[in-house]
Design a protein around this nucleic acid. Structure first.
Lengths: 205, 205
DNA sequence: GCTTATACGTACCGAGCGGTCACATCGTCA
DNA sequence: TGACGATGTGACCGCTCGGTACGTATAAGC
């Protein structure tokens, strides 16, 4: 009842099988890990059937790769949101991201889906791992560009230091849980930036 | 031939089944991940049989927990070696560890077995995860103590910053491989320590 | 020499895995 | 009305998973 026509009325959920699969796989893969979740569980929780899954995805590995792409898109959405809050101030952009991340990695955080996938699949040929490592390379470049924009003396070094810090926060969140070391995240980033962006023309603080 | 009596002649290898299982499981679990390795593969590569495994370990999960304990012992061996090289100089001890770690996380590094296990097993009841998180808590405390010994103004904060850095290096090593951000590891640690251990009485540099 | 305990192997189990098949059903648009 | 695309049904595949019942070799102890 009341669930009829009007298919393309923007977000008037048609709820296609493939979309339900993506959403469910995403939730289960992220929460429990990719290897730990079977395709049967996915289709059951999604309320669809296995042939529907394999009509849209060539294999479980490809579904995992698709999950990676979706996760990556969300990552950049969050990352860009921090940047958009402070236009023309790369330093504040960076700190804003770390503050957001500090909050995110505190509670029942399960880490970064992309980092977790790299850990789960050491084989560099795995489609999910390829997406994940590609994203990390892009993030590394982005941080280096940001470091350059901040006026760091050696941008590549500051960028890499921030990579280490971010990955550390991502993984420490799920190791230590609530009272974990992520509380010092933003302050630590601040310290590193201060050390690399020396004297003249510091925007924040 | 020549492989008879003399069982307890110290290290005159009797090569018991359980030892071969531990060594093989360790190698496979570390390289491929715990979930990715079946008990059949372990016993086959170890040259033993399944009942031999289950006579020494209650389950695969318990074997994984045993692997965690072995890995942890090796971790502390490496950690203590860095410390022993610079007695009575906590600052140099810490830097020495980071330098060693920077080298380790460069080549075909597969990350920290303990961290990887936490990622693989999000369920906090899993025996392997319990060992791993227990170890990480001990490491955190150890770093805090070291920060205190260095004379840090806020030891807990420096300790936690170093936790983030270490975990970041551990996981970045397997994400980025050879040219990864671990190259800046020791320098970054130095920067953080310098910022926390303020003016008077700095040993190194 | 016979027993006993220790250490190990052969063969097997039920269940779940990822993946596929032929066919039935439903709603949509022409 | 008829054809089409998307989905569900239910059965099935070969394989691998973690785990076990039971038989066998060996070396020490009396």
């Amino acid at each position: 009842m009341a669930k009829k026509t009007a298919v393309s009325l923007a977000s008037a959920a048609p709820a296609r099988a493939v979309d339900k699969i993506r959403a469910t796989a995403r939730e289960l893969f992220y929460r429990q890990g990719i290897r730990a979740v079977g395709v049967d569980e996915i289709v059951q929780r999604a309320g669809v059937t296995k042939p529907s899954l394999y009509r849209s995805f060539a294999s479980k590995d490809e579904l995992a790769a698709s999950y990676m792409r979706d996760y990556e898109a969300d990552f950049w959405t969050r990352f860009d949101a921090s940047a958009a809050a402070h236009p023309d101030d790369p330093r504040r952009q960076m700190i804003a991201y770390f503050e957001m991340l500090s909050g995110r990695t505190r509670d029942g955080y399960r880490g970064c889906g992309l980092t977790n996938a790299v850990v789960e699949y050491p084989d560099s040929d795995h489609p999910a791992r390829k997406v994940a490592t590609g994203h990390k390379a892009a993030l590394r470049k982005r941080l280096r560009d940001l470091a350059k924009a901040m006026g760091a003396e050696r941008p590549a070094e500051l960028g890499d230091a921030l990579v280490l810090l971010i990955e550390g926060a991502l993984v420490s969140g799920q190791i230590f849980g609530k009272g974990g070391p992520s509380a010092v995240l933003a302050q630590t980033a601040q310290t590193l930036i201060d050390a690399h962006v020396k004297p003249a023309r510091r925007s924040g603080k």
